[in-house]
Design a protein around this nucleic acid. Sequence first.
DNA 1: ACTTACCGTAAGTACAAACTTACCATTAAA
DNA 2: TTTAATGGTAAGTTTGTACTTACGGTAAGT
Lengths: 109, 109
Amino acid sequence: MKKQAISSSDKAFNALGDPTRRAIFEKLRVRPLAVVEIADGLPVSRPAVSQHLKVLKDARLIRVHREGTRNLCQIDTRGVLAMRNYLDNFWDIALAAFKQAAEKHKKHE
Amino acid sequence: MKKQAISSSDKAFNALGDPTRRAIFEKLRVRPLAVVEIADGLPVSRPAVSQHLKVLKDARLIRVHREGTRNLCQIDTRGVLAMRNYLDNFWDIALAAFKQAAEKHKKHE
DNA sequence: ACTTACCGTAAGTACAAACTTACCATTAAA
DNA sequence: TTTAATGGTAAGTTTGTACTTACGGTAAGT
């Protein structure tokens, strides 16, 4: 297998592909949380959460900053924007192709 | 053991998390293609492509219909819309949280 | 009927990733 | 300074998944 370039949205899609990371991501949607608060209620250990946070951070989906002994995590808008932009751009190009294909597809299904 | 409910956007994010599937997805953005055309140029075998197409189809990201001996694949707008809706909804709530955090921060100054 | 093109699935393998426990560092409070 | 809270990282295991080859099955052309 050969390595290929990884865009910012690539990492973001990959990060949100995991259900546990999705759960973490959605927990942070409401308000910033410390690591221990994120782990609480999840069916995995705290170290596992730490590892997931690392992935989310690398995908620019969350930001982390120290506050005393706590590591407060919050949503990073950059990763979300990257995905939105990718999908919006995709949408524009795909829509034209879709309309064209819809003509031929009309008699089927 | 970690089985949880899988929404349509869940499957879509998971599907686009794989770089090969991303490549397939983007190939179909321009126009519908047969399986052999999709596999051509990709660094994986055709059966591998078939397996990826299965995942993409299950995530409602592509549609497949027979045409002679060929299986024509095209973008399915439903999966794309599901992701867009998820991100848009997420965006709104996250922004509200930021606003609230900003208010709170202001009060403490 | 035979051949060719197209494609899905089965079986098995190899590597990536998600998880665990154990440990250590840092900070705040007692 | 001792204790408690927080959490990152290492090491190792297990599970998941992306891939391969081999095969069978269908449709179109010869």
